[in-house]
């Protein structure tokens, strides 16, 4: 047990936080091991960001315990945060400073000496793909560059653990891929990453382990592939367009293990999709897509298809 806790950088038990009548975090348990990339998934309002803020000691919990970098939070949150980096959901880079000044000023918040920060800045900018932009004004940076500067800023104190709240929301595919590549290299360096996202492909690609959170509770946890294997049939046939609803009502239930109807579309889940595909081929008129089940299917099955605003 002793050695197990030594390798854990974050341990949360029975965490609770209530706002008015709503329990935003309702008894969450998490254990993050050193060096892993852990994803916290959930629809909007699931409690992901609140969980991160609780872990950082920015909000007092109503119940439960948090241990971050071996320190008890919130009582020793400040000391714990010295070894942690944060990439917030919305960029909050200082618009009045240049790229390099942003890193210098942020490093000072950790009590790091100017000379030491200045020594790190070239490497940080290189890592973030911002080499040669040290003196650039923030207004001249693209969205992707700002995101990468935020990432560089989170690394200014050479943290052991990096929290990232939706690191690629709002980025174009090129910028997202660059961020993913950088995150992988951080994990390769031995850093621990905890990220929240609602992009399933992001979670599937990056995270060795993830938890799906809904209404303040963690409803499934494990490696992505294992979640797909445990929680859902391996084959999916999506049927779209004219006549699909009717087909979905009459034919699908006897062919598929599970059927979900969303508007005019039908999602058939099965261990063997052969009979479904054969039936659709025989009819010829219906457009369909046959694919392996993925994390998004698990997510939608567990959290439902209703909109969360």
């Amino acid at each position: 047990m002793e050695s197990l806790t030594a390798t854990q950088v974050l341990r949360v038990t029975g965490l609770r936080k209530r706002y008015g009548d709503v329990e935003v975090v309702a008894g969450t348990d998490l254990a993050i091991a050193r060096g892993e990339c852990f994803g916290l998934l959930g629809p909007n309002g699931a409690g992901k960001t609140t969980t991160l803020r609780l872990c950082l000691g920015l909000v007092d919990p109503d119940g439960g315990t948090i241990e971050l970098m071996g320190r008890s939070v919130p009582s020793e949150a400040r000391a714990a945060r010295e070894r942690v980096g944060v990439v917030p959901q919305h960029d909050n880079i200082d618009p009045d400073f240049t790229v390099a000044e942003n890193l210098l000023v942020y490093g000072r918040y950790f009590g790091i000496a100017d000379a030491q920060i200045r020594g790190r800045i070239p490497d940080l900018l290189e890592f973030a793909g911002l080499g040669g932009r040290a003196d650039a004004k923030i207004q001249t940076l693209s969205g992707g560059m700002k995101r990468r500067l935020t990432l560089a800023r989170a690394l200014v104190n050479d943290p052991e653990l990096v929290f990232m709240d939706e690191p690629t929301t709002g980025l174009d595919p090129q910028a997202r891929h660059l961020i993913w590549e950088r995150l992988r290299s951080l994990v390769a360096q031995g850093k621990t990453i905890v990220l929240t996202t609602h992009f399933m492909d992001e979670a599937e690609r990056l995270c060795g382990r993830l938890a799906i959170m809904d209404r303040g509770r963690i409803i499934a946890q494990g490696p992505p592939r294992e979640l797909v294997q445990t929680h859902i049939e391996p084959q999916v046939v999506e049927v779209h367009g004219d006549g699909s609803a009717e087909w979905g009502e009459r034919e699908a239930p006897r062919l598929a293990a599970r059927v979900e109807r969303v508007g005019e579309s039908v999602f058939c889940y099965a261990r063997d999709a052969g009979p479904i595909v054969a039936d659709l081929e025989r009819r010829g008129a219906l457009a369909y897509l046959h694919r392996p089940a993925n994390l998004e299917d698990v997510f939608l099955k567990l959290t439902g298809r209703d909109l969360r605003d």
Partner: peptide, 14 residues
């Protein structure tokens, strides 16, 4: 507006 405080609060500053 700039959320500068939020950024600072993520560092070890209360």
């Amino acid at each position: 507006v700039q959320k500068t405080w939020d950024a600072i609060l993520n560092a070890p500053i209360a």
